[in-house]
Design a protein around this nucleic acid. Sequence first.
DNA 1: GGAATAGTGTCTTTAAGACACTATCAA
DNA 2: TTGATAGTGTCTTAAAGACACTATTCC
Lengths: 230, 230
Amino acid sequence: MILTLRESRLHVLLVERGEDPFRGMLALPGGFLSHDGEEILDAAHRELSEETALSSGWVHLEQLAVYGRSGRDPRGRVISVAHLAIAPGLPDPVAGTDATDAAWIPAEAVLSGEATLAFDHHRIAADGIERARTKIEFSALATAFCGESFTIAELQQVYEAVWGTTLDTRNFYRKVQAAKGFIVPVGTDRRTTGGRPARLYRAGPTTVLFPPLIRPAPSATEENTRGEEE
Amino acid sequence: MILTLRESRLHVLLVERGEDPFRGMLALPGGFLSHDGEEILDAAHRELSEETALSSGWVHLEQLAVYGRSGRDPRGRVISVAHLAIAPGLPDPVAGTDATDAAWIPAEAVLSGEATLAFDHHRIAADGIERARTKIEFSALATAFCGESFTIAELQQVYEAVWGTTLDTRNFYRKVQAAKGFIVPVGTDRRTTGGRPARLYRAGPTTVLFPPLIRPAPSATEENTRGEEE
DNA sequence: GGAATAGTGTCTTTAAGACACTATCAA
DNA sequence: TTGATAGTGTCTTAAAGACACTATTCC
């Protein structure tokens, strides 16, 4: 599953299936190993570039979990190794091999069930979004949603979009700057959009955020996002 | 991979392989799906009870990650779905089907490389231990190392063993009791070992610890425990 | 009374949360 | 000068870390 930010909102790339089963329904992009010896991670990269025509240099890609319940695919026993990809704002999607059409769908619509997904892809998507939500608390992953350089305001929009919350600007500035090695200033550069120019930063060397940026508690939450257990 | 506490130290169950490849070497217990339709989680439970003869009611079992690099098994392409099991102090191990012998090995010895493991099992074991170390910070998972009831001192030993640190008793008492729903007193019960009797607790309803029990920073750490990526 | 283990209280420091104004640029 | 966006400072509260003594039982 591929996540990105568009118009300051979190979006998931979905394809409209061009073949049975579930022809015409929305599904996560994906596919089978192209040959017996293909590495799983290579296959994930291949599927990713087939769907997004993206130079995989700037994409974060990690394994999510395995989904292998019998019955999840009417064609028979299919074991899927779900991966999570995060990329900066992407061009409009390109139709892939097994898809007639692809589109960025707001994560909200997927989570709420407003968009219905084929197979058990709702569950996979929910797990992936939850992984992203958790991981940006403790790792520098949020910068994967940004381009090479970005402003602190843009980074704040990433957190707000992924968590679906609003954050206090002053506290956010304090916290990202307190996390040493998270972002480093790109010297002289600035960019302007009508107001005071913003300082540009790029991702720093650190992958582990300390202190972390804890997500505000919504009210009562669940845990358990890992794989198919239970 | 199965983790438990023995003599206040974290141990991993390893089997000595009775068959090629890697005959005679230590390896994580495991096996293949018994038939085409077997659920992955069921198979993990089955392997678990084959190795430990444990009523799976008291065991925590979760999916860890997939390991599928070609070349990881000389027999051919083998995709392993690693699982992490955590159980309270277990009886001495029972030899499994594909193992001539099984033994609890200190996690330290596995991590340090003092014990050499077959296949890529060192990596899997390291990932599993790191998962446990991280997860007891934010979830009530540590109680899975204890029996049905336990003392706070015993729970502290779990944290110390898994993290490989020592903790301040007073701060630990304060923190576990501040995390509402983590542990609940088992009323009148006590148990005695020569000193003042300790109050007994059992696992509470909460799975998410708030505030969490943050693991003390060792000095400089890495992250990235998920699966085979990179 | 002594050995053994259980349990607690205070002070300091760090970080979170809440909150509103000043700074810099373009038009 | 106005509109727009960027950036900052303080006070309060929560939680972490450091630290040493009292309590209860068995012998």
